[in-house]
Design a protein around this nucleic acid. Structure first.
Lengths: 398, 398
DNA sequence: GCTTTATGTTCTACGGAAGAACAAAACCCG
DNA sequence: CGGGTTTTGTTCTTCCGTAGAACATAAAGC
């Protein structure tokens, strides 16, 4: 992808840059802002801020709220909020579910459909047709009011971000699938979702609590525990996708070169110790055991389960310490089934990171867990589409 | 480090942004450009381009060359080049040398001093005083003509980029040293070099052949083989420094959790297999053996040396595959003593990466070697200072 | 010597932000 | 209850930087 030489900035560049700034400022704020607030936060004059806000309001990107009289002196402010009628569709296919979720620019879930099902080894065309029907159904509902800014599709595997193809999704058993094309055929008119890796998109929901609103952590390594282990590095609030979009494959970092073989063709991958299937197999439990059950057995003193958890923690410690050493990240966030196992995993993991991370003496890495609603990838896919609107609001203003 | 909300763009922002664009454009070009070339490449009009160029020429950031009549029709162009009188000082302390190098905005080495010496376990104050004297001497020479834009200092260890302190340099045996303060006392007036990690800065010399001029590779993992192993990930031409500046510690990625203990307190670090001392010890050779000698013995059939090289390649393969899986980098660049060993190391390393990197089926990672002049860190430190000028030329224009 | 071609300069027009003045809508207080 | 205070939002002028067009310049081609 050759990066353009960069083009000269003209007056209109100034305007669009400032429109984006104003929109981002309102989105990033904790509560509604007035035009005067926007002026202060952007460092512009009230005149300029008002002009920009008016333009965004006219385009529906910002809403003026009811001016509820505040207990303050002075003329009451007109509260500004991100436009509630701008929305985006987030879709997700996973080994265990199909999900469609509609978010508005305020980050609220307008509508959603989640269908749990075992999709391992399923037929891509049939599964994607089901997802398309789900999404079409969703859009026919209360979503009719929304202006769709775009759609995204979270996939559990290697996605070619240039050509928009799913190269390989080991957990689904899919290879070289034109997921977008198969899906788009079952979506309204010209809606083509942008595909992305599930872990990358789920990580985005941690970095961003709503479109343009930064979450509590801006630099961390996200781990998405599925059947395997996906991951994403977030630096400065941005998900690192890598030069081809294949970054974050933490699950295949080698923990022990002499370890067990992995589906990927390598040996001793992290996934073979801390992936859900591997962990349950090592613990001698059926593969559909719930994480809570695992934790319960461990605290009840089941030696096999404890040994399996311990091995998983050790493997995670070795692999993540390497990643943290290379990327200098202050935190590791456990998601997916790993979040549910955070109780027993966290203490040994933090201890290992403290020992194996070179800079731990100056800043000890923190391990956190996020347990949000299911199908975080769908939310992230919608956030991504809405992020495009924030990055270039002029395109939406027509 | 709380990132600022971003400030509104005004007319002057436009001007400084375009000045930077014009300067970058001239620096990035292969040969001299005319004002008309600049207009085309920046997408501005000739009028605007000329105005911006004039301003940069007046400030010394661009030079007008002699208009040597080209064999073309039309009015002959005035060739533009990066300002030859803007320079920056790059300094480096390493286990084996002290270096001071002066670069101009065209990327030419104006003057340099390199002193080889064994500095392991040396006294920081004395060593930095020596480097200060070296630099002062250098600046008194033909450099008098140059306007110094800044200085940088490459250090072989963990540098706190916020407080500008050297936290730990294992190869030197230094800990918690105020390298900048100690050095600045022996430099002309208010010159305070900005410290940085040696590998990060050396990687910059690969990403950038001259200030603002992109090198052949824009995404790669750089390995700086010293006594230990430093590293830096370059993404989109930018060196990833991480949230605290501690990124790139590839040398302490774990290759085998049951491996030999490392100085860092961990076990089985890459450094213990592929670091210079570790490799020579494993080969049964004295620690000051030259890399060429190692290669010679290996091709002569010395079994011990071959085994050591093989173990190093295996360790590199395991560790680098992990990094490449996480960062999605298309290439690995060997620098330092590893570059000299590239002959025997490359084939097994590429084979291992092809097997252990998840995306290798779609894009096989490439292994390259760079053998440039010594003390690449000093060059990188100067490039970094000159990069600051490119990023904000208005500050230089007064 | 005239035409052609490309570079560089000059001049006017336009768009967008700054800054100041003004209008609006509340509260506070005598 | 009416004027002062305070904060918000609007209007108007000024300034600045780029666009665009016309023009000047310096070469080669014929």
């Amino acid at each position: 992808m050759r990066t353009t030489e960069g083009t000269g900035a003209r007056q209109s560049t100034l305007r669009s840059s400032n429109l984006a700034l104003v929109l981002r400022t309102v989105c990033a704020a904790d509560g509604p802002l007035s035009r005067a607030d926007v002026a202060v936060r952007t460092g512009t004059t009230r005149a300029t801020a008002a002009r920009l806000v008016d333009e965004l309001v006219a385009g529906g990107l910002l809403d003026e709220g009811e001016r509820l009289a505040p207990p303050r002196r002075g003329r009451p402010a007109t509260p500004l909020l991100p436009g509630a009628r701008i929305g985006a569709l987030g879709l997700q296919v996973d080994a265990g579910l199909l999900a469609a979720r509609l978010l508005d620019l305020r980050g609220r879930v307008v509508a959603e459909r989640v269908e749990e099902d075992d999709l391992v080894g399923s037929d891509p065309a049939r599964t994607l047709a089901r997802l398309g029907a789900l999404a079409t159904d969703l859009l026919a509902g209360p979503a009719g009011e929304l202006r769709l800014a775009g759609a995204g599709l979270a996939l559990p595997g290697l996605v070619d971000v240039e050509r928009h193809l799913l190269l390989r999704a080991p957990n689904l058993g899919w290879s070289d699938v034109d997921a977008v094309g198969l899906l788009a055929a079952h979506l309204p008119d010209g809606l083509r979702p942008v595909p992305g890796n599930e872990a990358d998109l789920a990580a985005r929901t941690v970095a961003e609590t709503a479109p343009g609103r930064p979450g509590p952590m801006r630099d961390f390594l996200y781990l998405s525990g599925q059947i395997g282990i996906g991951g994403a590095a977030v630096v400065g609030g941005q998900v690192m996708t890598g030069s081809a979009g294949w970054a974050g494959e933490v699950g295949h970092v080698c923990v022990d070169p002499d370890g067990p073989p992995c589906r990927c063709g390598s040996t001793g991958c992290l996934e073979q110790y801390a992936g859900r299937h591997a962990l349950l197999a090592a613990a001698g439990l059926p593969l559909d055991t719930a994480p809570a059950e695992v934790v319960a057995r461990a605290s009840a003193g089941d030696a096999d389960v404890r040994r399996a958890l311990d091995a998983a923690a050790r493997a995670l410690g070795v692999a993540l310490a390497g990643v943290v050493n290379v990327l200098d990240l202050p935190a590791v966030v456990l998601g997916g089934h790993l979040a549910a196992l955070a109780g027993p995993l966290r203490p040994p993991l933090e201890e290992l990171l403290g020992r194996r991370v070179l800079s731990a003496r100056w800043r000890r890495p923190v391990v956190a867990a996020v347990t949000g609603p299911p199908a975080a990838g769908a939310t992230g896919a919608a956030l991504r589409a809405l992020g495009d609107v924030l990055a270039d609001p002029v395109r939406r203003l027509g």
